[in-house]
């Protein structure tokens, strides 16, 4: 029998050892980004030069500024997150609460779609984007998004939505399943419409689920590489996003400036950390909403 004081110490030890490895990694990243060279965690000279991409393009004036690229990435991530959360919530609710023909088949199909490696769908999606580009008003020349066709931020976001939706629908269905029918039934008896029940009764109870899905969707879009690479023209083009911009620093044929890579990597990480900080309360409260065991 361990003494009461030893238990928490052991618990902390178990937590600290694996965490320290991750923290060391981030520490190295931080030190490297401000150093000319490093040996382990020791800087051999401090510099701000690796961060100069913030105020000037490291690849000459013809390259897009990091801020334009960040705006592209942010718009793409927010659009994707918004669509995924809204569509998943509505679909998850319908699948959780309503019985209709093909419900199980639809659920299975979404799971199968999620299992498809995205690379196998790139060419068919390309042709879909070509058709979308021909649709008046939304195909081309939409402010900020560029549109929803090939080589537009909206187009890339749309493709990302398609890949993320199966995951989102299943997650949200799970959260709706955990909400008691009693609450919903009471509201319906009181005369609320189905939409009102969904919006005013159910949605506030699955905030942790919305937060979780938002974070996963945002992170997926923020770090996406293959889809933006395939469906936009040029890592320095009008629709470039951060993951592509970072690749400009890494080349197979010339020496990679890892210090600059570390700085851009950290820069890419900052919004993600901020996003996590603002949503972590909802995330940690993941089973706090609704009543379990409803019919």
């Amino acid at each position: 029998m361990l003494r009461p004081k030893v238990k928490p110490v052991l618990a902390y030890l178990v937590l600290i050892v694996p965490s320290s490895l991750i923290i060391l990694g981030f520490l190295w990243l931080l030190i490297t980004s401000f150093s000319t060279r490093v040996e382990g965690l020791q800087s051999l000279g401090w510099t701000l030069n690796n961060w100069r991409f913030l105020w000037e393009s490291p690849f000459g004036p013809q390259y897009p500024s990091i801020w334009a690229v960040t705006l592209n990435t942010l718009v793409m991530s927010l659009i994707m997150t918004l669509i995924v959360v809204v569509v998943s919530s509505l679909t998850g609710y319908a699948l959780s609460r309503m019985k209709f023909p093909g419900r199980k088949g639809f659920l299975s199909l979404t799971l199968i779609l999620h299992a498809f490696p995205s690379v196998t769908l790139l060419i068919p999606i390309y042709f879909v984007l070509l058709q979308i580009a021909k649709i008046p008003l939304i195909g081309r020349d939409v402010p900020l998004l560029g549109g929803f066709g090939y080589n537009t931020i909206g187009g890339v976001a749309l493709v990302m939505v398609a890949f993320q939706l199966p995951f989102g629908i299943w997650i949200m269905k799970g959260f709706f399943d955990n909400i008691s029918w009693d609450m919903e039934r009471s509201a319906l008896i009181d005369g609320a419409s189905r939409f009102k029940v969904w919006w005013q009764i159910i949605m506030p109870n699955i905030k942790p689920g919305i937060a979780a899905l938002s974070i996963f969707s945002f992170l997926t879009a923020w770090n996406a590489y293959l889809i933006p690479l395939t469906f936009t023209a040029g890592r320095a083009g009008k629709s470039a996003v951060l993951s592509l911009y970072l690749q400009n620093f890494i080349s197979e044929s010339v020496m990679t400036e890892w210090n600059a890579v570390a700085a851009v990597g950290l820069f890419q990480l900052v919004p993600v950390v901020l996003f996590f900080l603002f949503t972590q309360e909802a995330l940690l409260n993941i089973y706090g909403g609704g009543k379990k065991g409803g019919v």
């Binding site: 390259y63 390309y126 984007l129 580009a133 090939y150 023209a233 040029g234 197979e252």
Partner: peptide, 22 residues
């Protein structure tokens, strides 16, 4: 538009963007 992308994606990009008129 100028970068140091690898040859494979560089050529693919031209082919795909040609199809899209971009």
């Amino acid at each position: 538009i100028q970068d140091n992308i690898d040859w494979g994606p560089y050529v693919t990009e031209f082919v795909l963007s040609y199809g899209a008129g971009e």
